[in-house]
């Protein structure tokens, strides 16, 4: 067991290294870079000659180390990350990449975690209802709705909900996390109410698929548990149905869902991404998207790397948790 844990942790180190290389390379794949765009901007808008603008851009390249070969650039990047926590400079936002990410990570986490919590809770409750009322109208309906929920592309759900809010319910402002008049205001009650009015929309949109998934998993697990011998025994010895359900069945059916929480985090983060892009929220998703489109290389790379690292560590944790709680697995 101990040796399994050590082996598993030791293995993560080369994995992270390989992952960081690939993140860096992928982000460098598109031809040109952010400065190429600046160069043409200098020419057309600042009215500099070709030579002048190239000279300026070349100097900028030198300052930011972009004139070096790719392996060298990578080494500098990864060295700064590991030693100084410095993810490089974002040309798009004109500040260090980590600042952009940290700023936006706060909202990402709030929205993502809310969506995750609510969808897990709602999904579990519907799942329990469905399993205890198997083949009832409610069960059929929720199963069917879960299928529909899983069949909607996230961006389309966002479009539909936005359309309904704006054109059917005449909500004046959707998208973003606050109405324009409150953007610069300090936090007060009115701003908070306005925030809530915006906040629930992305939470619901990115939660739809989660509700459907959790409901289906819970329903299937619970039905499996119902057929197991210990539940039959519990019923046979005359326990109240309520106790059978909550003390025996639900607890055991929850195991796989609990084990899943370890890997859930990165999925939550990427799950809200598309919604955030469509709704234009101040989260990491749209920033990553913009960084990709405008070739803000280091910002995009840093974001990709961070989500990946979170995923790797999440996987590690969930493996370890599973090894911890499941006595049936042997790791020699």
């Amino acid at each position: 067991m101990i040796s399994y844990i050590i082996r598993r942790i030791l293995y993560v180190i080369p994995l992270l290294l390989a992952v960081s290389i690939v993140c860096f390379v992928i982000i460098q794949l598109p031809p040109g870079d952010f400065l190429t765009a600046i160069e043409s901007q200098l020419k057309s808008q600042a009215g500099l000659s070709e030579e002048e603008s190239r000279k300026m851009v070349d100097e900028m390249r030198k300052t930011y180390g972009l004139d070096k070969s790719m392996p060298v650039q990578y080494l500098i990047w990864i060295k700064n990350i590991v030693t100084k926590g410095d993810f490089g400079y974002s040309f798009g936002y004109r500040k260090p990449a980590q600042e952009v990410i940290w700023e936006r990570l706060k909202w990402t986490m709030i929205i993502a975690l809310s969506a995750h919590l609510i969808s897990t809770l709602v999904g579990l409750l519907i799942g329990i209802y469905s399993a205890t009322h198997q083949y009832s109208l409610g069960d059929h309906l929720s199963t069917f709705l879960a299928f529909i929920g899983l069949s909607f592309p996230e961006f389309f759900t966002a479009l539909v909900i936005m359309y309904l809010l704006v054109f059917r319910f005449r909500v004046p402002h959707v998208g973003g996390l606050s109405s324009p008049e409150y953007v610069l205001a300090t936090w007060n009650w009115a701003k908070f109410v306005d925030f809530l009015q915006h906040f629930w929309i992305p939470v619901v949109i990115s939660g739809v698929a989660g509700v459907a998934r959790n409901m289906r998993v819970m329903r299937a697990n619970l039905l499996d548990v119902f057929r197991s011998q210990y539940v039959i025994t519990a019923r046979a010895k005359g326990l109240k149905e309520r106790i059978v359900l909550y003390k025996h069945a639900v607890v055991n059916a929850l195991h796989p869902i609990i084990a899943y929480q370890g890997v859930a985090l990165p999925y939550i983060v990427q799950g809200t991404m598309v919604t955030a892009i469509v709704l234009n929220l101040p989260t990491t998703g749209p920033a990553f998207y913009d960084a990709l489109v405008f070739q803000d290389t280091l910002l995009a790379g840093s974001f990709l790397l961070m989500v990946t690292v979170v995923l790797v560590i999440g996987n590690l944790l969930s493996d370890l948790i599973l090894a911890w709680i499941d006595p049936r697995i042997r790791y020699d």
């Binding site: 994995l15 990165p266 999925y267 990427q270 990553f288 990709l304 989500v307 990946t308 996987n315």
Partner: peptide, 8 residues
């Protein structure tokens, strides 16, 4: 499998 699907 280490990479997050959508961003990748």
């Amino acid at each position: 499998q280490s990479f997050p699907q959508l961003p990748l």
